[in-house]
């Protein structure tokens, strides 16, 4: 959890807007440091968190969260965190063996054309089941609103799933988690290549980014500096709110530069890096 980002977004573990769909995106840069912020934020806010870790192993997230002061292992034991380790699950589908049972959630790998219904089923069933019957005899702790985090939804495109299917998946997740249960959804999209080379043939990740930007209520878009690589400033984040006040929807944009440290990240207005002041 980065406190500076919290003050930018006007959130804290005690108070955050519910029913939000946050999109993290990057272009020729790496926005994955932001997913750790949201993971630790919602765990501290005592939300029940579902994490679809599609690109890294549990150890990776656990090691980083440790540095940010949150223990994923404990959260998992307490039942606060439900972690789907995509890499592990995928092996049983990619290398089928007679003995073991196939993973249902990653079943789309064997035939991507089917779409992500199996993955959504996994999310829906586990989210709704725990939402209803959490009254357990042994005094299980009460958790706040549900939160769904997806680390790198664009990797699904690399695995052969079509853009339409991914957008369907995100829409269904949004409908279930944000609208029905008043929870939050955070998704990370990574795309590379230049912006808007030619409108004719939009490549997959670009179309996915556009589609998700249309759905979401808050975007954090990470880019490298336009002037090139710098050791003291790792890039810039464009924060874009889409708010609705009455009948009138307005968007508000702010630009910040950031630097990632060992145990966090600092955000500052452009040009006010400690390296140049």
């Amino acid at each position: 959890m980065y406190t500076e980002l919290n003050s930018i977004l006007n959130t804290s573990p005690d108070s955050f807007t519910q029913g939000e769909f946050v999109l993290l995106s990057d272009r020729k840069s790496d926005a994955s440091f932001l997913i750790h912020h949201f993971l630790s934020l919602y765990l501290r806010a005592r939300c029940k968190v579902w994490f679809l870790g599609l690109v890294q192993s549990f150890n990776h997230y656990s090691a980083i969260s440790q540095r940010l002061g949150v223990s994923l292992v404990q959260a998992k034991e307490k039942g606060q965190l439900v972690f789907l380790e995509g890499l592990n699950e995928s092996l049983s589908v990619l290398i089928p063996q007679e003995t073991d049972t196939r993973s249902q959630a990653m079943g789309f790998l064997s035939d991507p054309a089917v779409g992500l219904k199996s993955l959504y089923e996994f999310v829906r069933s586990s989210v709704t089941s725990s939402g209803g019957g959490e009254e357990e005899a042994d005094g299980a702790e009460e958790w706040g609103p549900p939160v769904l985090l997806v680390d790198d939804i664009s990797v699904l495109l690399s695995l052969g799933v079509s853009v339409g299917a991914v957008l369907d998946f995100s829409h269904y997740c949004r409908a279930t988690v944000c609208s029905q249960l008043q929870g939050n959804v955070v998704m990370l999209v990574r795309c590379d290549g230049e912006e808007e080379e030619d409108d004719g043939d939009d490549e997959g990740s670009e179309r996915l980014l556009k589609g998700l930007t249309h759905q979401c209520s808050l975007t954090l878009h990470v880019q490298g500096l336009p002037t090139g690589f710098c050791r003291d400033i790792h890039g810039q984040v464009e924060v874009c709110w889409r708010r609705r006040q009455g009948d009138w929807q307005y968007t508000q944009k702010k630009l910040f530069q950031y630097k990632v440290h060992d145990k966090g990240a600092s955000f500052f207005a452009p040009g006010t890096s400690s390296a140049v002041l």
């Binding site: 020729k28 840069s29 790496d30 230049e194 880019q223 490298g224 500096l225 336009p226 002037t227 090139g228 690589f229 400033i233 790792h234 890039g235 530069q257 452009p270 040009g271 890096s273 140049v276």
Partner: peptide, 13 residues
């Protein structure tokens, strides 16, 4: 090459 080099049109700081 680099993480964000797309041109050197202006300076950031």
């Amino acid at each position: 090459c680099g993480s964000g080099t797309s041109g050197n049109k202006h300076l950031d700081f």
